[in-house]
Structure formats: C-alpha cells, structure tokens
Design a protein around this nucleic acid. Structure first.
Lengths: 333, 333
DNA sequence: TTGTACGCGTTATCAT
DNA sequence: ATGATAACGCGTACAA
C-alpha cells in the first residue's frame, strides 16, 4: 500500500541507492535531489522505520522502567523524559515492574528484544546484577532515583541525605529532640540515604539518637498510617515526626486526623514530595520536594549522549538538590 | 551476534521453515520439535520482533496520547492500559500532546509512521477531524474520557451527567438552593456533560437555576482558586459549591483555606477525582471519583479486539459509572 | 556521484 | 509435515 523507496526511485528515475543516500543526508547531485523530492512529495513517501531498524539495529525508541506508573513521581519523571527525547525523534515506551525484581528483569528482556536504543530505569531492588546481565553493555541504561549494587551505570539521583538533613536540622534548631522518623525498607537505596541524613544531624549536633523513634515502613500509605500511630502511642512520644516518602505521608496525615492530634501543637510534622500537599492541607505542611521533572530531563539527556556513542566519564552520577519547603506544620518548642 | 532462526535450523538439522512454524505454534513432528527446542535452548535463541514486524506489518506496540502525562488521571489510565496489554505482549508508548491540537496531530502522525498497531487517545479538543485524517481506518483508535465531533470512533467514557447529578442532588436534598458550580471550558466534552448533570437536577426538582452561580474555568488550579473567590464575594454567595475537576478542586481548597472559610459551616464543598483528597483533608471532602484504572482497562480491551480484526458494533461507546463519595464537607441546611 | 546487488531475520507460498 | 525460496523495505559495500 504505502510507497516504498523503490517506488520513489522508479518515479524519480534514479536508483534506490541514491534515494536512500539522499534520505540519510548524504551528498546527491542537485538534479537528482530535486527529482527525489518531487517523487517523495507526490507519493507521500515515508521511510519504513521497521525495515530501517532491521538494518541498523536501532529503533529510535527508549524504554522507561519504573516500579509503578500510577504515582506522581514516576509520571513527572516520564513526562520530563518524553518531552526531552521528543525533540530528537525518539519515542518512549513505559514499563511497570510492579516493584517486582523478576518482572523488572522480564521487562528489560522484553524491551531489549524489541531493540530499544536505551533504557532509563528506576530499579526496584538494591541489586542490579540482572540489569547488566540482560542489557549487556551494548545498550545504554541510566538509573534514576536509586543506585544499585553490582552494576556500573550512569545515574541521576537526588541528594536525599542533605534534603533530610535540612528538614531534621530545622526541627532541631526549633528545639525538638525527640524526633521520630518513618522511613522505607532498609534495602532501598533512597530509604538508607534518607535515614543517613537523619542520623547525621544528630551526630553533627552531638545529640543522642533514640533508635526506637525510627520506624521502617515499606513506602506505602498503610505503613505510614500504622507507624505514626505506633510512635504516638509510645510512653514518651516524639514531639516531631519526619515522614520519608509521599505515600507514607498520606497515611500519616490520615492517622493524625483520625486521632485528632493537633498539628503543630501536639506534633510537628514534615512530609515528603508533592508540593500540592503543603498547599491544600491546613495547617500547610512542611515538605521535602524533589525536582522530578529535572530528574527526567537529566536522565534523558545522559541517555541521549550515551546513545550517540559518548563514553565520557562513565559511569557518571548526577545528584540533584531537593528543596525543603517550610510550612506551618512545625512549631518552636 | 544473537542467534537467528537460521542458526537454530542448522543446529537442529531442519529447515528454517520448520523452525518458524514450530515457533508460531503450528504442528511439527515430535522429533523435530525436540531437536528445535534443544537448539533454541543451547543458542539462547529469541525471535527478532523487528524482522517479524517487517513481514507481518505489525509492531506489537500501541500508543497512548494524552493532553498531559503528569496527572493522576492520565497515569492511572496508562497504568491500566499497560497492565492489560502486557499480557498480550504489547508495549505502550506514551505521547504528551500538551493540550495542543497541532501537537496532538503531530504525535499521531509520528506514531503512525512508527507502525503502531493501535492508539488510544484522550483528545484535547472537541473536534476529531485530524484523528481520522491521520490514522485513516487501517489503524484502530479508541477515545477515552472525551468524545469528539467529526470522527466515528470507539470510546470509553464516564457517565459525567449522572455523577454530577448525584452530587448536586445530594446538596438539594440537604436543603441547598444556591449551589455554585465551577466547571471547565464549554468546548470540552466532559465539562459540557458535567454542566448538564447540574442543570438536570434543577429541572427535575423544578427549581430555578441561577446562571450567575456557574463559572467556567479551564480545568487548572489557578481558575479553581480564582472562581471560588468570585463566587464567595457575591452579594449573595452560594451555600454550596461543586467543583468539576481535580486541579480546580485543589485551587478551590487553597482559596477556602486562605480565606478562612469554614467547611462545611460556611460553605459546603464537593470536589472531583482522586479519593486521596477526601482522606487527608479535614473535614473529609465529598468527591466524585472516576474509575480511572477501569477506563484504561476497558480502552485497552476494546483496542485489543479491534486490533484482532473485530468490527462488532462499531463505533462502540462504553460509559462507566463514577462514584459519589460522601465526606463531611457538606452540611444540612 | 551513481547503480547494482546482497543481506538484515522473519513469514508464507509452493512443491514434495 | 517438511524444505527451498521469494518476499518485506531498507542500508551499504562494491564497482563503475
């Protein structure tokens, strides 16, 4: 149905080789160029990307693999990636690993078999063996948000340590000492980092740290809800709590509302991600916000360079700053 | 590098035809089957989907085009689509039309040129001429959320009329008469529908409708903020307001918080979308929630049928029910 | 610069 | 049931 390069050649009365060369930006005589252009126009000819892929082993497609699609973090990043790569003619295919390493590996294999030119991945586990195992080093990959062990890869991360540091330090300077933290699983990179930020404040201020105030959730709404209740039911509950991701922040707020705990009078609270929250909740919530669109944009840019063949200072790790937004959910003691 | 079907044939000592047939599920003698399986295993052979696409003119890829990626509505739908189509071996590429009809058309052309097998689209305008113009009828498309004029297409929609009806009716039965509505642009399908639901309640209850209480925003946070302020500054402000999309609901809540308006004592409020809201806001917000994942799932299912060649009752329009979740943000007068 | 011809990895047709 | 072989549409040596 659709016109092929042969039809163009026939109509333009030149060889397919000439047409192909013209199409790929090589030098062609002025007359032939004109004839080809005319033929292309008249036939409404479009290169068949599939046939081209078969020859070149390039698909002009990249894959993005995330633990979950339906959350603002993933989608903001994906939006950033799509927008950036769009200008280069790449399309992006999305993959949901559902926080399952096996599924993640399967998805990687799947997109590799589809000949994607690159992949950006937000790994679901702390080990990255399967990533290089599947992808090899023919097809470039960049990590985002989380670093993994056993895999040398480019990455764009957020400076979680200092983001959390800033937030907790604020609490300290306001006089808080019993500061609870609800963080993620120990095997998740960002969770470890966020916890380290917390710890470092206490070290730097030479204050004792009460391990019982640190609770490990699994980044879900449920555990946020559950763990803040645990903390508040302690004989000596914390005067402030820092919650280290968005979903758990939602859960914590629900629990606080239900229990009728007054913020910030009875408890100072700092949440994570999504500035929207700080705006619609009363009192406005203090939060640590990550530069999501920028993560996507940077990851796309790095991947693009790699796909173009650059090997400059590999592996490269970019760290983006997060911002602490001061709301009215924390109080001076 | 990677093993081809030829290598398998050679190692198994059969013809490529036999291998291909075996791979595609046709009958093959028991002995050959065994030999092929053995060879496949030893060579770690994988079918090359690009070569297959070249032959079959199918890419096992679908595109989803939305006005914006980074919002809960789009991503929930996309997640539903990805999850559903994953089982059939399809991958989904995402496109952001940035609420721009021109860009939407460009994206459609782009994915068509990439030989996607189908596209699901959440149209950004009320006209759909460009959709069929670009896609023709060779490549199936299904609309979601919004219907368009001048394009006969399958669609999966939400019953906005009755969803809004339910919400406004609730306000009526609680004694409200001056009910404000903040809705979307008149040219957007869902906005018109939601407005119709509002209107219908007044008709059915034989009550007079005050047009000045209907305000048209553009589905952004900003206009939600602005318009609710306009309403509340009326000489005779409404006793209740219904906000007809998520972003505007956020804006409205911000305005209400800033102005110190007591909910529900001074104003009853009903929002739209994302149940999360109703959970973390105090008092809990009454909202109309759309079945987002289901929209994606249904759209994917319809598209899949069409891609398989079914033409049953085309164009088919599915309407999903939205739910009204009662919170504590509305009061009996 | 241009044309020819082969190959990329499959599927499908046609004999056998 | 199986084997040989011609497509699918393009890129690219190679020769001219």
């Amino acid at each position: 149905m659709a016109a092929t390069i042969k039809d163009v050649a026939a109509l333009a009365q030149v060889s397919v080789g000439t047409v192909s060369r013209y199409l790929n930006g090589y030098e062609v005589s002025e007359v032939n160029k004109r004839k080809i252009e005319e033929a292309v126009r008249r036939l409404d000819f479009k290169l068949n990307p599939v046939a081209r892929s078969l020859k070149t082993s390039k698909s002009m497609t990249v894959a993005v693999v995330v633990p979950a699609l339906a959350n603002v973090f993933s989608m903001s990043i994906i939006e950033g990636i799509e927008r950036h790569l769009d200008q280069y003619g790449y399309s992006v295919i999305v993959c949901d690993s559902q926080s399952d390493v096996q599924k993640e590996k399967a998805k990687l294999q799947f997109v590799k078999d589809k000949y994607v030119d690159g992949v950006v991945i937000m790994p679901t586990g702390s080990d990255g063996t399967h990533i290089t195992e599947v992808l090899g080093d023919e097809i470039p990959a960049v990590l985002m948000d989380r670093l993994v062990e056993n895999a040398k890869l480019d990455a764009v991360l957020v400076d979680n340590v200092n983001a959390v540091y800033q937030a907790v330090e604020r609490l300290i300077t306001l006089g808080h000492r019993r500061i609870g933290m609800i963080t993620g699983p120990k095997h998740i990179y960002t969770a470890r980092e966020r916890q380290e930020g917390y710890r470092r404040v206490f070290v730097d201020y030479n204050l004792p740290m009460d391990e019982s105030l640190i609770r490990y959730g699994d980044y879900t709404e449920d555990t946020g809800y559950k763990l803040i209740n645990e903390l508040m039911r302690l004989e000596c509950p914390p005067t402030a709590v820092f919650v280290a991701n968005y979903e758990m922040t939602i859960g914590a707020i629900m629990a606080v509302n239900e229990a009728g705990i007054q913020i910030p009078d009875q408890l100072s609270l700092i949440g994570f991600d999504q500035l929207e929250l700080s705006k619609i909740i009363r009192p406005s919530l203090s939060v640590v916000v990550q530069p999501m669109a920028e993560i996507g944009q940077k990851a796309a840019e790095m991947l693009y360079q790699r796909m173009r063949g650059s090997h400059d200072n590999f592996p490269q790790v970019i760290r983006l700053k997060a911002n602490f937004i001061d709301g009215q959910s924390i109080k001076k003691l």
